[in-house]
Amino acid sequence: MNRREFLKSAALMTAAGAMLGKGSVLKATEIPAAKPEKPVLNFNPQMQYRPMGRTGVNVSALGFGLLRLPMLADGKTVDAEQSVAMIRRAIEGGVN
């Protein structure tokens, strides 16, 4: 999708939302989560998975970036306890 197509679809969604109400637009664009055909590492039925190119691997639609982990009061040290808890929660949710 290029920039022009994105802006066009965003404008159409905004117009539809203004005319129909927020709930109608969201229901029309929801895609039901389907179980992937191939096995998924760390599968959770509430997560959507998509094929990663031609690798045959299915990955979660959401990821968990590690750039900004919680810091301790000194501002220089990563809070390992809270970071591990956050990562485990993401894994429980189906992020792979």
Rank of each mutant, 00 (worst) to 15 (best):
V84D: 14
N44M: 05
F43R: 03
R4I: 12
A16F: 02
E30Y: 09
A11D: 15
A28G: 11
S9L: 13
N58I: 00
A33L: 15
G75D: 05
A28D: 09
N44C: 06
L72E: 03
R50M: 09
E92G: 12
M13D: 05
I87S: 00
V59C: 01
R4T: 10
Q46D: 12
N96H: 07
G21S: 06
T29R: 05
A16L: 05
T77C: 09
P32K: 15
G63V: 05
T29V: 13
L41G: 03
G53D: 01
G21L: 06
E81Q: 14
N58W: 10
K76A: 04
V59F: 02
D79N: 11
Q82H: 13
L26R: 10
Q82K: 14
N96F: 07
K35G: 00
F6H: 13
P45D: 14
A61K: 12
L41M: 07
Q48D: 11
T29G: 00
I87Q: 01
A85P: 03
G17I: 04
V59H: 01
N44K: 04
N42M: 06
A34M: 14
G65V: 11
M13T: 13
P36T: 03
G23N: 13
E5L: 11
R89A: 15
A10T: 10
S24D: 14
A61S: 13
R4N: 08
E81N: 11
E30M: 09
P45I: 13
V57S: 00
R88C: 03
A73D: 14
L7S: 08
I31D: 06
D74S: 08
L66C: 13
N96Y: 04
L20C: 11
M1F: 14
K35E: 08
P70V: 00
K76D: 00
S9V: 11
V57L: 11
L12S: 15
S9T: 12
M52Y: 09
D79L: 01
I31T: 14
P45H: 13
G75E: 06
G93T: 00
A11H: 07
G93F: 00
V40F: 10
V40H: 07
L20F: 10
L69I: 00
P36L: 05
M86D: 06
P70I: 02
R50N: 07
G21I: 03
Q46S: 10
G53Y: 03
A73R: 07
E30K: 12
P70T: 03
K38I: 08
G17W: 02
E92I: 09
A11N: 12
R88M: 03
D79M: 00
Y49A: 05
F64N: 04
G65C: 12
R89H: 15
G17V: 03
K35I: 02
M71D: 04
Q48N: 10
R3M: 10
K35Q: 04
G21A: 07
M13S: 13
V84Q: 15
A15I: 09
M47W: 06
A34L: 14
A34C: 11
K22N: 08
Q46P: 01
A33N: 15
F6G: 08
R88K: 15
A10H: 11
L69S: 01
M1P: 12
G94N: 01
A18I: 09
A18Q: 11
A28W: 08
L41T: 08
A15V: 14
G93W: 01
A34W: 06
E92F: 10
E5S: 09
G93E: 01
A73W: 07
G65M: 12
G93L: 01
M19K: 12
E92R: 11
G56A: 09
S9F: 04
A18C: 07
K76R: 04
T29Y: 04
